[in-house]
């Protein structure tokens, strides 16, 4: 198939970017979207031009590195897939495809279609963990966990941190991402211990980093390649409200860290 690509080019975070158009011929419908971009880049290198920079790594939909805003939708027209799992059979011969990077204040552009998502790491560092040292664990089967809870925790933990939720949200809100981690840990007895503290710290960090607010448009759920549910956002709201309302202040002589 023959395609016209309209791709955002930008040298780094400080310079202004613009769209550049490319013609691409004889693309197999069996090729993946990123393989199509590989072909484009090979063509650009052969012409002595600089290839288009885009993020990608595992190319099997799990590392969360790839993320392109394709024709107005994160990860393209197909639901429940990452960009690397999208195949050209979802497009038609003669199509024009507009490719943009994720756009959010908290995700500055590194180059072309590559953005810096380290804000996601900072949120996790604020509290996305269970405080347990190596070697301290009791036997794995010492506390049974209802299968339904374990399954729901897993579904939330399946988040790959790609940022499509932020990209899709008209407010560039990170609520789905943060709530997935809050939910995952809040649903398990191991995570329950620190739940109240965790949700407050993670939400505060998220707000500080300049993500937008949730106005419940549910675009995030619709575009999430891993189908993470907005019920996680409700759970986080619940956890957050109850932590704010009922959690006691830390004791003034608390010597812990």
């Amino acid at each position: 198939m023959n395609l016209t690509l309209k791709i955002w080019r930008q040298k780094n975070a400080k310079t202004k970017g613009k769209f550049e158009s490319f013609k691409l011929n004889d693309i197999s419908p069996e090729a993946s979207f990123l393989e199509m971009l590989d072909i484009l880049n090979q063509q650009l290198i052969d012409e002595g031009k600089e290839p288009v920079a885009f993020d990608h790594d595992c190319r099997e939909g799990i590392c969360g590195t790839c993320g392109l805003y394709i024709n107005g939708r994160p990860h393209g027209p197909e639901r429940g897939v990452t960009t690397c799992q999208l195949h050209m059979r979802k497009f038609k011969d003669g199509d024009t495809i507009v490719i943009e990077p994720w756009r959010a204040k908290a995700f500055p552009i590194v180059r072309d279609l590559v953005v810096d998502r380290s804000a996601f790491d900072l949120i996790m560092q604020a509290g996305g963990f269970v405080s347990v040292n190596t070697g301290n664990a009791p036997d794995a089967n010492s506390s049974p966990i209802p299968k339904l809870d374990a399954d729901r925790a897993f579904e939330a933990a399946a988040c790959i941190g790609c940022g499509a939720c932020v990209a899709a949200c008209k407010n560039a809100s990170a609520m789905l991402y943060v709530s997935a981690k809050v939910s995952h840990l809040a649903l398990l007895p191991q995570g329950k211990v620190e739940a109240a503290e965790r949700v407050q710290k993670m939400v505060a960090k998220m707000d500080e980093l300049g993500f937008g607010n949730c106005t419940n448009t549910y675009a995030c759920e619709f575009e999430c390649p891993k189908n993470i549910s907005v019920s996680n956002i409700a759970r986080m709201n619940r956890e957050f409200l109850s932590a704010k309302l009922f959690a006691e202040k830390p004791s003034p002589i608390d010597m812990g860290d």
């Binding site: 959010a104 899709a168 300049g210 937008g212 419940n216 675009a219």
Partner: peptide, 19 residues
């Protein structure tokens, strides 16, 4: 606040929300 969270808008933006 929400507008500030996305200083640069998308060139093409489809309605991906359910509502």
């Amino acid at each position: 606040q929400n507008r500030a969270a996305r200083p640069q808008q998308y060139y093409v933006s489809n309605n991906s929300q359910q509502s």
